[in-house]
Design a protein around this nucleic acid. Structure first.
Length: 294
DNA sequence: TTCCAGGGGTAGA
DNA sequence: TCTACCCATGGA
């Protein structure tokens, strides 16, 4: 296919999903906010590297254009993952309707968050958000992509995010020198090697219907470089909004609400009443419209 | 030069 | 379980 249409749930909005957090600022995503078009360079399982352009011409429908003939089913599946189209929000939206600080969530079709096409890419990027500035997160992510990602023929200056196999074959020292991700290098390189060796069946974790949220969190915490914050963030991306990903933003937010400096425990206590959607509630609690509601 | 950012790992208590 | 300390990087 070169283009296809995808039906979306009634409570979905492309723009709100993208605006939910900063993932659209990380390559290989490029978000054209003015025209409402999300671009992404994607390497398919065949090895083909395509430029995807995703738009929402009307509520309930997405259009996807690929830069060349490609497997439509695979592209649709990847877009569904990126936009969390298969995650049900009915109960969370019903909960938000009764809360003054969250009523905007169902009204604006919020609640979903842009994610990568693989859990591998999301995990690497979350690790790159730890103990650093957002500007450095973007730089580190771009260096990994530009050194090890495959070039897109339709856009020769742009690349796909490298798969774990592209990192695992690179010696640690060489990867460290090129990526300049600081002490995070061992976490990312060992994750790539673990996936390729079959020791860490990362992608399988998100389709393992037998596991509960506790087990999934325990698995994520077992990854090097993944602590409570990173695990909670990844759980949010996996549709499990139970845990608050306490970061400096959360501490600032709750500090303003309470009028004093707060500990992580106090942040958790602040969102305790939002169970079982503490994490989702935090993600959208502080939301303010980027532009007037039309 | 020093501090610190969308934290995590480790040792020791 | 809690605390202290260290961790690479680069901008302020």
């Amino acid at each position: 296919m070169r283009s296809l249409e995808l039906l979306t749930p009634n409570d979905f909005s492309l723009r709100e999903t993208i605006d939910a957090h900063g993932w659209h600022q990380l390559l290989p995503f490029v978000w054209d906010s003015a025209n409402g078009i999300l671009e992404r360079i994607e390497q398919l399982s065949s090895g083909k590297v395509v430029l995807l352009r995703i738009a929402e011409p009307e509520l309930g429908k997405l259009t996807i254009e690929a830069s060349e003939e490609a497997d439509g089913e695979e592209i649709a599946a990847r877009v569904r993952r990126m936009l969390q189209l298969d995650i049900a929000l009915d109960e969370f939206h019903a909960f938000c309707t009764g809360h003054p600080r969250l009523a905007h969530v169902p009204e604006r079709r919020q609640g979903r968050m842009l994610r990568s096409s693989t859990l591998w890419e999301d995990t690497v990027k979350v690790i790159l958000t730890t103990n650093t500035t957002w500007g450095q997160t973007k730089s580190m992510s771009a260096r990994i992509l530009n050194h090890f990602g495959a070039v897109c023929p339709a856009a020769p200056d742009r690349r796909a995010f490298p798969g774990p196999e592209s990192i695992a074959v690179v010696p640690l020292e060489e990867f460290a020198s090129a990526a300049k991700v600081g002490y995070r290098v061992a976490a990312i390189h060992s994750l790539a090697c673990g996936i390729c060796d079959g020791v860490i069946p990362l992608e399988g974790w998100q389709t393992d219907t037998e596991q509960d949220a506790f087990t999934l969190r325990k698995r994520l915490l077992g990854l090097r470089g993944v602590g409570p914050y990173a695990a909670a963030t990844l759980l949010l991306y996996l549709g499990r909004g139970e845990h608050v990903n306490v970061d400096s933003w959360a501490r600032t937010l709750v500090g303003k609400e309470l009028g004093c400096a707060v500990t992580d425990a106090e942040v958790h206590a602040f969102f305790a009443d939002f169970a079982p959607w503490r994490g989702l509630a935090y993600s959208f609690y502080a939301w303010t419209p980027a532009e007037p509601v039309k």
